[in-house]
Nucleic acid binder design. Structure first.
Lengths: 187, 187
DNA sequence: GGTAACATGTAAGCGGTTACATGATTAG
DNA sequence: CTAATCATGTAACCGCTTACATGTTACC
């Protein structure tokens, strides 16, 4: 019962179905598009994408068509009416569930008492730079692309990209304050 | 080569080793303690904990002792000098790696164009309430416990709990602003 | 002295990641 | 015409989660 078989969609299935709804037509296009947007909050790996596509087609939520070029396989998809209905039902369901965060930098910070003052400062600075880089990527690439998508009538990606920018601003600021505090404490 | 065998510790091994360094003595104690603190940024499941404990003991980074009560098994651990050295080396290593976030609420928001205005508002409010609840838990339980740990000389947990509080404040505020904006747009 | 809560550990299976294999297209 | 890049899909493996099995103490 691992995916879209009965009842409500599970999240990975909905993610793939939703990418098709936003205009990605093949597994490869989903991969490229989600790598530049969705992946910041919901990563999709190739085998996930391709196997979900198959299941969604079998379930009638996607309509597939063969577009092979010579010996090279290629299968494209469109969302069906049933697919749109399933996506709406999924998006409106109750209790999305908890956010999950996994951060090796915070893990190190948790055990930072094993570190020298200088080591701790370096860790905090690395964490800050990581978010500054993410912020630059978001603002130079992701947000502009999301705005184009918004121009086509899909406002979700831009909102989520905006969330990402705000999030990394918060993290960078938090690291900056902590860094300053550490500097003061050392004198 | 899956863990602490040669060279640097991997993150899950370091997490378990670090929990012992902070005073958790058995697998069960690590489970309880990490569930109230570390799990917000680095979840540990029982089989991970127990198998890492075995590997760390074999590698000489932990010293184990049998403390069975009757037919009930129990094994307790202390960190060794080699263990402390490995933990220091791990904490000071280069490039912690990227933060990973997976959030079903943001996933839904990404595809929110499938939703009615009311559905979107409900989603944003659910997201806000989720962070408000997390904030309450952090401030009522986690932060006080982390402060006690800080009193014993370990300042990492309190810093990380503080980060969590700031993070959920940011998310709740972001949702509140978005909610207000949606309300205005609907008139 | 029975029931619930605490404590300890494990088996089994899923989901997901890494890495690759292969084919077409463009550029130099 | 060769090399590099784009495009498409898959195999194999591993970490992790869920769920359980079992034992022991505390409570009523």
């Amino acid at each position: 019962m691992s995916a879209s078989e009965q009842g409500r969609l599970l999240n990975p299935a909905a993610a793939v179905l939703g990418m098709v709804a936003l205009g990605a037509r093949s597994g490869y296009e989903i991969r490229r598009a989600s790598d530049r947007s969705l992946r910041f909050f919901w990563a999709l790996s190739p085998p996930q994408i391709y196997s979900e596509l198959q299941r969604l087609e079998k379930a009638g939520l996607l309509a597939g068509a063969d577009e092979a070029r010579g010996r090279r396989p290629r299968r494209t998809f469109e969302i069906t009416e049933a697919g749109r209905a399933a996506l709406r039902e999924w998006a409106g369901g109750p209790d999305p569930g908890p956010i999950e965060i996994r951060d090796p930098a915070l893990l190190r910070l948790f055990f930072a008492d094993a570190l020298t003052d200088a080591g701790l400062a370096a860790l905090v600075e690395a964490m800050r730079l990581r978010s500054v880089a993410a912020l630059e990527l978001l603002e130079s690439d992701i947000l502009p692309a999301a705005r184009r998508t918004a121009g086509e009538g899909f406002t979700g990606p831009e909102r989520v990209a905006g969330f990402g920018a705000g999030l990394h601003e918060f993290i960078a600021g938090w690291c900056e304050r902590l860094g300053a505090e550490l500097k003061n404490a050392r004198g």
